[in-house]
Design a protein around this nucleic acid. Sequence first.
DNA 1: TCTTGAAACTTCATGCTTGAAATAATTGAC
DNA 2: GTCAATTATTTCAAGCATGAAGTTTCAAGA
Lengths: 156, 156
Amino acid sequence: MHDMPLSQIASYAGSKERLRLWIRLLRVSRTIENELRLRLKSEFDMTLPRFDVMAALNRKPDGLLMSDLSRFLLVSNGNVTVIVDRLVTDGLVVRSSREGDRRTSIVTLTDAGMTLFRQIATEHEKWVNELLGSIGDEEARHLAGMLKSFRSNWET
Amino acid sequence: MHDMPLSQIASYAGSKERLRLWIRLLRVSRTIENELRLRLKSEFDMTLPRFDVMAALNRKPDGLLMSDLSRFLLVSNGNVTVIVDRLVTDGLVVRSSREGDRRTSIVTLTDAGMTLFRQIATEHEKWVNELLGSIGDEEARHLAGMLKSFRSNWET
DNA sequence: TCTTGAAACTTCATGCTTGAAATAATTGAC
DNA sequence: GTCAATTATTTCAAGCATGAAGTTTCAAGA
């Protein structure tokens, strides 16, 4: 075993390591998120939550239900309603009712929405690449793999 | 070199890997953050931002300036004001003016604040340990190391 | 059919968060 | 010493986010 105080072994081996990891994880994602938010705002007058919704919709040409968006983006239902409302106002997405179930509405990108998204996404990818520049290709793949295994473990 | 389309090599080698990594990173931290928020609320009627502030103050017994908190927690000045206001109302922290500079105020935990923090921190560490349970000790150290190098690269 | 329960959303109150503008105190150049 | 620039903080408007309560619609059994 490694060197650690008895109290830790008794309770949770490696607990400190994982706590430290969590703090680092949080700081890295906050730093990147802040920087991306800033650039989205200044370059495209776009917010991160709206961009996230557009990115999710872009992956599914047939559209997504409100609840799909909520699940996928890990935010509440009420939140999605507000964000989509604003995107509708801006003409970037549309809600259309579905045959056979009048409770649901399918959200899809408009043509304007698709065009704008593609523009922003190109820059966004460059930014992320730049911000994570200190991480090599191989390392990135390795890290992503670890994080993926976490997700699938937890998500079930 | 690895197998990848020409277009990628031409623009940003490994760009897709790093974008994927960023998305995973974001999803993992959101998942954990959501779960921690839920538990803090139900077990201690505490919010995550307030807990973050208390954790920062706990590390510095002599207290921190508002601007220190803002820098450390990576949130805006105005935000810190609001959070600290609420903690003061709850009697968990105090603002005290500093000799020689009447612009600044030093924030410290009260005794009640310290007591409560220690209680919550114990549980919090267990939760994090549980949520990151699928990551081994060695792996955690490795990951934390990578993330640290990123930070110091960016932070300057 | 009717009615009970569940599902998909929306609305609302509350709290978090930012960025810009305002206030107040300090520092430095002259 | 005075004034301009800087620093620390607060205030404010707008947007994001949650969870609970409410509305409408669907589904399925008695």
